[in-house]
Design a protein around this nucleic acid. Structure first.
Lengths: 192, 192
DNA sequence: AGACGCTTGTGAAAAGCTTCACAAGAAAGT
DNA sequence: ACTTTCTTGTGAAGCTTTTCACAAGCGTCT
C-alpha cells in the first residue's frame, strides 16, 4: 500500500529508508513505486525531488482540488482550521450549513452559505470533492445531492455508511470505529 | 474485514443484508463471523440481539475503556463533544493540554490538566487508551510518554507516523491522507 | 412426513499481496 | 579498467484474503 513520504534533507533516499518511515519493508516500497515506472537509480536510491514530483502526479496533487465543506459544526471548524489544507492542494471554495443561525457567519474569507445552495455552489464553483461533516441522519441525503450535482468523491465524517454509485469513491473517517478497532486489537492480544 | 452492524428493526438478519450495509459480500460476512463461532441459524440468518451481544464481546465493548484526550485544540474539542462517545463504552477520564491559557478550563465535568501530569494521570486513572490530538511536532514524544506510563493503544490524529513498540496498536486518522486517497482514486479512474 | 425455499458454515479454487533472492546498473576508490 | 559497495527492479515462492460452490440445517406449507 502507498505510504506518505516525508522530506529528510538528503538528495536521494533508499527504499530501506522509506520503509523505516512508512512502517513497511524495503521490498514493498520498491514494488509499489515500480508500478508507476522505474525512476530509481541503482546503487543510489530515489532522488527526493523526483520522488516528490512523481508522487504529486500519481496522487493527483499536481492540480488544485476544489472542496466544499458541508457542516459548520465542531468537526467542520476543526477541519477548516487545519493548517496544511491549502498547502497540500485543497482549496475550500465554500462552507455550507443548514442552521440559520450560522448562515452569514464569516470563517476567514469564506461566508457560511445555506444548505439549499449546495447544488448551485457545486456547479458554479466546479467543486470536485465534498467533506461531509454533518450528523448521521443528514449524511445520506446530502451525499446524494452532492453526487447528483457532479461531485466526484466524498470524505465522510458522519458515522454511517453512505450509499453512492460505485464510481464515486468515499473515504470514511469514523471516530468510534477507529476506537473499536483499537479495542478489538487490545482484546485480541489479551485473549489469543 | 470486520464491519459495523446497524440495527434494522428485524429480529433476524441475513449475511446478504449485512453485506449490503457493510459494502462487502455475503460470503465475506459469513467467513468473518464464523471465526468467532457459528451462531447463525440456517434458513434464517443471525439473530440481531445475539449478533449485537457477540460483537460487543468480540470488539471488547463489554467493558468500559478509560481514555485520556491529549490536546484541547479544535480537534480535541470536536472529539470531546462527540455524542456517541460515552454511549459506546468510552469514558474520557481526563483532558490534558500544554497551553497554560487552557489549563483549568472546564469542559463538561472535566477540567483541563497540564501536560506534565500525563504520566501520573494515566497511572492514577488507569487509562488504557489515549487520543493524540496534538500538533505533529509533539506527537512522537507524547506517544512515547503515554506508552511508558502504561497505555495500551493510541488513536493518532497528528499527521505523522508515530513509532511505538509493536505490541501497542495505533490507529491513524489523517485528514490530508484521506483526501489524497480520494484524489488518487479519482485520478486513477480518469487515466487508466 | 415430505417437499420446498432460504441461509449458514466451510472446504476448495482463485486472486491478491508480501517477502525472498538475485541479476544488473551505478558510483567511488584503487 | 577493475573491484567493491550499494541499491534497484522483478520473477518466483510463499502467504493471506476473497470468492465460489454446495452439503447440511432450519422453518413452513401442504
Amino acid at each position: 500500500m502507498l505510504e506518505l513520504i516525508q522530506d529528510d534533507g538528503g538528495v536521494t533516499v533508499s527504499s530501506e529508508q522509506l520503509a523505516r518511515r512508512g512502517h513497511t519493508t524495503a521490498a514493498q516500497v520498491r514494488k509499489d513505486l515500480s508500478h508507476f515506472g522505474s525512476f530509481g537509480k541503482r546503487g543510489l536510491g530515489y532522488s527526493v525531488d523526483e520522488l516528490k514530483d512523481r508522487l504529486r502526479i500519481i496522487l493527483g496533487l499536481d492540480r488544485v482540488w476544489r472542496v466544499i465543506l458541508i457542516g459548520a459544526g465542531r468537526i467542520g471548524s476543526a477541519l477548516f482550521e487545519y493548517p496544511d489544507f491549502k498547502k497540500r492542494g485543497y482549496d475550500c471554495v465554500a462552507v455550507v450549513d443548514s442552521d440559520p443561525a450560522k448562515i452569514g457567519e464569516k470563517w476567514g474569507e469564506r461566508v457560511i452559505r445555506p444548505a439549499e445552495e449546495l447544488e448551485s455552489l457545486i456547479k458554479e464553483l466546479r467543486a470536485t470533492l465534498v467533506i461531509l461533516a454533518v450528523p448521521a441522519s443528514a449524511a445520506q441525503l446530502v451525499a446524494e445531492r452532492s453526487v447528483n450535482a457532479g461531485v466526484r468523491g466524498i470524505l465522510n465524517f458522519a458515522p454511517v455508511q453512505i450509499q453512492v454509485p460505485e464510481d464515486i469513491p468515499v473515504e470514511n473517517v469514523n471516530l468510534v470505529m477507529e476506537l473499536e478497532a483499537l479495542s478489538f486489537q487490545i482484546t485480541r492480544a489479551l485473549t489469543p
